[in-house]
Design a protein around this nucleic acid. Sequence first.
DNA 1: TAAAAAACTTGAAGTACTTCAAGAAATTAG
DNA 2: CTAATTTCTTGAAGTACTTCAAGTTTTTTA
Lengths: 190, 190
Amino acid sequence: MYKALLQHIEKIITLELWEIDLLESCLSVSTIKKKELILKEGQICNTLYFITKGCLRQYIINSKGSEQTLQFGIENWWITDYLSYHNQTPSHFYIQAVEKCEVITLEKQTLESILIQIPKLERYFRIIAQKSFGAAQMRIKFLFTMSAEERYHHFNDLYPEFVQRVPQYMLASYLDFSAEFMSKIRAGKV
Amino acid sequence: MYKALLQHIEKIITLELWEIDLLESCLSVSTIKKKELILKEGQICNTLYFITKGCLRQYIINSKGSEQTLQFGIENWWITDYLSYHNQTPSHFYIQAVEKCEVITLEKQTLESILIQIPKLERYFRIIAQKSFGAAQMRIKFLFTMSAEERYHHFNDLYPEFVQRVPQYMLASYLDFSAEFMSKIRAGKV
DNA sequence: TAAAAAACTTGAAGTACTTCAAGAAATTAG
DNA sequence: CTAATTTCTTGAAGTACTTCAAGTTTTTTA
């Protein structure tokens, strides 16, 4: 049940048996229906989600009322709003299932307590967060330096299966251009 | 000498005296001249820098040969390329002093070893990284949802002193528009 | 399996920016 | 203190996108 997460953790640290038992006793699994929201703008985010199946996205609603995807998460990724989580402030984001999902949830309170009992886990979450931050910086680099067409082709080259997996308009907003423009890029009409 | 860093750490965790001593023995201070580079594209980044005085920036050189600032760092911030640091891959970035700076440097190897001796520090670096990631997500949100003019005013409202501190063209590139356009925004000619 | 809903496409018109070029102002260095 | 360098400003021309509106295709639901 929690195997995927344990494997993910054990790529970075090694756990004793009792630690695994303790950790597992703090986790729970939920399924999320397609389009269901697990975080809404204005809510305080008190949960970390580890995705074992499916795809989620973090998005905002812009001033024109349309959705813009800031982040996708798939199998073996954590997704949450760390700013809301740490500062206990209302979130600026929505987190929604793009597909039917299965996630492992970890509540802030629970996590705080197991981090005390298993300090090694601090290391795991540190490395996850540092890599995520590094990835966010690369994302900003790509947004800055590439044209819309380059961003599309770059993404399509790196993650061709993923491009098939999500609606085009969501990917377009993630790459920061309109769905219509994406359609033209794909048709070679630009 | 290392007081600023210790204070920063002790906002998050509490250190014993021997831990402080050990930590201090692993740190060193350097001064960086204005415009000096502490990381170049293509280099592997093996150092974390804690800024005690001055301002640094992370930038890239885009396809047109001009510099674009991705990140600024000032007093009490860490700056590094975590992706290059973790994956030991060539960096995509330059890190340069905007002003004469004083930084505390911490080498990867050294850090690895004190993290083993003082596991509590994992927690400190985890929280720093999670907050940084959260901030990067907010940055992407602002880039996505605001017009150039809104980004300028928003930033100017939040950090008016900082706007005075760096050349306009650097801030323009950080906010993702041209220096000329920034000049027009400031003059109200837009 | 039909109907409804969601996602994608297309062209035309508009716009928020960029680029270029040249001069003015401010800062730094000898 | 003067020259050299860096930074900022301005207008004109160009462009990479967006927006709108309508039709088509695909997917979902009952």
